[in-house]
Simulated scan of single mutants.
Amino acid sequence: MAQHLAVEVHGAGDPVILIHGLGGTSNVFTPQVGALSRFFQCVRFDLPGSGRSAITDDVSISGFVDAVVAVLDSRGIERAHVVGHSLGTVVCQHLAIRQPERVRSLSLIGPLHAPPEAARPALRDRAAKARADGMVGIADAVVQGGTSADTKANRPEVAAFVREILMRQDPEGYARTCEALAAAEPADVARIACPTLLITGDEDGTAPPPAVRALASKIPGSNLRILDRCGHWTTFERPAAVNEALVNFLFSVA
């Protein structure tokens, strides 16, 4: 599978694999790669159906976990620190349960356990909209609902980049990823045994602090950080705070 994925590697040291979310690509982690690659080997890739990676027959949470394992195997990586954003955090949780021996630590940014039942029909409706109308309307809605008031008012370049990354998605690949998230089942996170960090924004409507705190309470020994004036596009909106939290956490468990 790895040969069909767009993979980039930066730096040297203990491996860190980076898994983006719905509507994202590996570029979601560009602000982090600059900081982390000074100390770690950063491996980032586009999930099947997103960005520069081809759509596969299995665009699902299980298929995404298989893709992570394929990337690890292709690089000869036995164990890695695993970092995810949004949908990517769901993949992280299932990976840590399915193959705990491959996961050295988890960093979950804008984390989800699974979509609330009320959100599942909306995700399927979004998939239908992508197929029927393309990505422009979806991109505008995501910028409006997914970024903080401070980002929209004072950092329009971040809002512009979020819009661009959504508009560059293949509508069918994005639609299938929406359906994969809509079908996602929660992982048994009480079984996660590795060190875990959760980060979310105080204005994140997708991963609101109360929900993330509830998720953290189910993961033994996990740590939670809540960033101020931050929406769901955490890595863009508060890159310095995310980088500081990640570097400190990864060094603490290295």
Rank of each mutant, 00 (worst) to 15 (best):
Met1Tyr: 11
Gln3Asp: 15
His4Ala: 14
Ala6Cys: 09
Val7Ile: 15
Val7Gln: 06
Ala12Gly: 02
Val16Ile: 11
Ile17Val: 13
Ile17Gln: 04
Leu18Tyr: 09
Leu18Gly: 02
Leu22Cys: 01
Gly23Thr: 01
Phe29Thr: 05
Gly34Asn: 14
Phe39Thr: 08
Phe40Lys: 04
Cys42Gln: 03
Val43Tyr: 08
Gly49Ala: 00
Gly51His: 02
Ala54Ser: 02
Ile55Asn: 05
Thr56Arg: 06
Val59Asn: 08
Val59Trp: 04
Ile61Trp: 09
Ile61Gln: 06
Ile61Thr: 13
Ser62Thr: 07
Asp66Ala: 12
Ile77Val: 15
Arg79Ser: 15
Ala80Lys: 06
Ala80Ile: 02
His81Ala: 15
His85Tyr: 05
Leu87Gln: 15
Thr89Gly: 12
Ala96Cys: 12
Arg98Tyr: 11
Gln99Met: 10
Gln99Cys: 13
Gly110Cys: 03
Gly110Asp: 04
Ala114Trp: 00
Ala114Met: 00
Arg124Ser: 03
Asp125His: 00
Arg126Lys: 04
Ala128Met: 01
Ala132Met: 07
Asp133Leu: 09
Met135Glu: 04
Asp140His: 13
Gln144Arg: 12
Ala149Lys: 14
Asp150Cys: 04
Ile165His: 06
Ile165Cys: 07
Tyr174Arg: 06
Ala180Phe: 12
Leu181Asn: 03
Asp188Met: 06
Ala190Asp: 10
Ala190Phe: 04
Ala190Pro: 03
Leu197His: 10
Leu198Glu: 08
Thr206Ala: 13
Ala211Ile: 07
Lys218Ile: 01
Ser222Gln: 04
Ile226Gln: 10
Ile226Leu: 09
Leu227Phe: 13
Gly231Cys: 06
His232Tyr: 09
Trp233Pro: 05
Thr234Gln: 08
Thr234His: 11
Arg238Glu: 15
Ala240Met: 10
Asn243Leu: 06
Val247Met: 15
